[in-house]
């Protein structure tokens, strides 16, 4: 039911007349046990969708916070198999919350596109975001994922315009991820008016929900962005809280962010 799980989550939020709150965290940071604690608590803290980061040694689109989280994870030797096992644990307990894996091409390529897609499906993964795999390069992976009913979620950037916007949006599944800033994760505060315009442009070409992320770090910004998008993604702020204060404190933050995104502040 993978792709439909994503559809259902957005539909549920739309029915409740609020945006979906998407929470990102890094698998294996600071170790598997503690990251499992955070992961398991996300739905009850208010996350409508969960993005689980797969650590990579050379994450070119990440700011320092997520770079360092990936390094900490690799330091304790987190493997792709461990990330998939975390996903499976999550799915066993949370049957409705969509789980998206997010990372970089090489570890997935190294495992093999098809093998990865099969194992991810088996672990209850609903979608995949590969930051360094633009549509021009994603055909083999897209086919493998489609065979396993997993959505390949595409990124749209502020630089994606005109004919290219249409091209990138053809053949998308799950939802569309709008990168709200030109920059790395957690780098700058998005401009609400610019984001609202971009979301409107995207919606001219697709009926899929649009989630916005990359620069959202506090409840206030989450609320502003939620007002103009179907979903709002927060990553670096949660990862940073997890690093400084641990899982229960990170879940407290998730609660506040989710309430803001849901319009309850």
């Amino acid at each position: 039911m993978s792709i439909s799980r994503i559809e259902a989550a957005f539909a549920k939020c739309a029915n409740a007349d609020h945006s979906a709150f998407v929470a990102y965290m890094m698998a294996g940071d600071p170790d598997l046990a503690q990251s499992r604690e955070l992961l398991m608590g996300l739905p009850d803290a208010g996350a409508d969708i969960v993005e689980l980061g797969m650590p990579f040694s050379d994450p070119v689109a990440e700011g320092p916070t997520i770079q360092q989280a990936a390094q900490r994870s690799l330091l304790v030797r987190t493997k792709m198999q461990d990330v998939l096992a975390l996903a499976a644990d999550f799915r066993e307990v949370h049957s409705d919350t969509p789980l998206i894996l997010m990372g970089y091409a090489n570890p997935v390529h190294h495992m093999g596109w098809s093998k990865f897609a099969r194992l991810a499906a088996k672990s209850g993964v609903d979608g995949l975001i590969i930051v360094d795999l633009p549509p021009e390069e994603s055909q083999p992976l897209a086919m493998a994922l489609a065979d396993n009913d997993i959505a390949l979620i595409r990124l749209i950037a502020p630089t994606t315009k005109g004919a290219r916007l249409q091209q990138v949006l053809s053949g998308v599944s799950g939802f569309v991820y709008y990168v709200s800033i030109t920059g790395v994760t957690g780098a700058a505060i998005p401009d609400q008016q610019q984001v609202a315009r971009a979301v409107k442009d995207i919606k001219l070409h697709t009926g899929l929900p649009v989630a916005v992320g990359f620069g959202v770090r506090d409840p206030q910004t989450a609320k502003t962005i939620a007002d103009c998008a179907d979903g709002v993604v927060v990553g670096s702020a949660i990862v940073s809280q997890m690093h400084k204060k641990g899982a229960s404190s990170a879940l407290e933050l998730v609660k506040k962010l989710a309430e803001a995104a849901h319009g309850n502040i």
Partner: peptide, 13 residues
Amino acid sequence: GRFIPETLMPLVL
């Protein structure tokens, strides 16, 4: 090929 984030794709094109 061109394995880069979408933000850079329009630039390399």
